[in-house]
Design a protein around this nucleic acid. Structure first.
Lengths: 256, 256
DNA sequence: GTCTATAGACGGATAGAC
DNA sequence: GTCTATCCGTCTATAGAC
């Protein structure tokens, strides 16, 4: 179905690459601020000064860690959408195929060590909400083109959904995905990845469920404009707000 | 419809409370690791030693910041679900009402200064994926009861959805919500909160859209078991490579 | 490219006066 | 409860030998 696959270059275990690999893992485990260069160089068995020699500093190292994966990911996403649109001769691709192209490409990386595997998935899942401005700025820049293109594809595929709503839903899809990847533990009483389970098995369990949730959300009924959260806006301040909070049913979501 | 509202106590500007307020804001802005006690006590105009006197240390301060809001939130969620179930005399409440009870209660806090407003929403949105184990452990403990109860409510409300799938979807809903609240900037080309806009106006724009997305995802078609991401599991790799896939280190998080 | 050594700033925590 | 002063560890970054 999809023919050409972007070439994956076999990495060499140079000092530079060893630093990148260890940094990626430790940035996930302890966060950017919680990881020192000494932790990285110690575990990678390279000299402390090597980070500054090869990358120029800690921030530049983080940039290199992220770009190594994101350049590949977003080029692949562009390529997959190209193929999807080419194979549909003129008609817009179906929404669930676009979801698959954008998020499936990411999840697929989780099963592949050369592409960062589940370590990278956790890193990207957490980076969007990093308190460090330079990380968010880098992601904004790296994602700008591909998000704009996919957003347009969704708009074409969902003529009945207002443009603005598509953008919101894209954001919600990204959030649901990022959190699933970032791997919060607190729900794991029920949704538990067996820690001895291979990453490929984890992806196999996650992907169909996430996919169906995203497609369901993307196709949901258009929201009413004046729906209020429980207790109203300004919770606890006015009883008048409470009266309006009780709205009724949306219809059932479509299935395909 | 909903009668009693939990009482909101007017906070006094004691040293202790000033520390909590400033710490909440700075932990959001710079993250836990990126915020020093000197930054907090400086801005709160209290002595550096006051944090250790009143809370015992930095970690204990973070715990106090989170508990101040979460105790109220999760008690309110319990109360709202009580009322919802009482008003349905015997039948399970409809799924969208449960979504409203759980997530609407949270969003409502964003419009209320006394409850932390949008600052707390950002804090909680980011805390679930904190690299600091003690923060995730605290959240797991604070959410355990209320998540268990709401999960059961969803299971009762959605007899056609297998129990296990309900847990996954709960996790996805939490993710979509947390990210929307954490306020990643990178999609803001299209989904933009005017920074001069009042928090209450931001909530008014977010909530109906998030609500409809969550309900749509919750009611989606049941996923197929063998769906594969684009490129399959093990994107671009041979089977031999896949079998070599490795496991990551044991997590240092203590989950009760 | 790799290494040692160190500069120079900042971190959390605490002892003890008031 | 509040304050000053300080301990002691860690941080990033760099100078300079090899």
């Amino acid at each position: 179905m999809f023919t050409a696959m972007a070439v994956i270059t076999q990495p060499v275990a140079t000092t530079r690459n060893r630093i990148l690999d260890v940094a990626e893992r430790l940035f996930v485990k302890h966060g950017y601020d919680g990881t020192s260069l000494r932790m990285i160089t110690g575990e990678a068995k390279v000299n402390l000064a090597a980070v500054n020699y090869h990358f120029g500093g800690k921030e530049a190292l983080m940039e290199a860690v992220l770009k190594r994966r994101l350049d590949w990911l977003n080029e692949e996403r562009m390529r997959v959408l190209d193929e999807l649109e080419a194979s549909a001769d003129g008609r817009p691709p179906r929404p669930h195929k676009i979801v698959e192209a954008f998020f499936g490409t990411l999840i697929g990386m989780g099963s592949n060590r050369e592409l960062g595997g589940e370590v990278f998935l956790k890193l990207i899942g957490r980076s969007f909400t990093s308190p460090n401005g330079f990380i968010r700025a880098l992601l904004a820049e790296e994602y700008r083109e591909v998000v704009e293109r996919y957003k347009q594809a969704f708009i074409n595929a969902l003529p009945e959904v207002p443009r603005q709503e598509v953008a919101w839903r894209f954001q919600f899809m990204l959030g649901a995905t990022a959190y699933a990847l970032a791997g919060s533990d607190f729900l794991q009483v029920s949704v538990q990845f067996d820690s001895d389970e291979l990453p490929i098995e984890q992806a196999r369990r996650l992907w169909p469920r996430l996919y169906s949730f995203l497609v369901g959300g993307m196709r949901a009924a258009i929201p009413e404009g004046d729906l209020q959260p429980l207790g109203g806006f300004g919770l606890g301040l006015s009883m008048a707000d409470l009266e309006a909070a009780d709205l009724d049913d949306a219809d059932d979501a479509a299935v395909a």
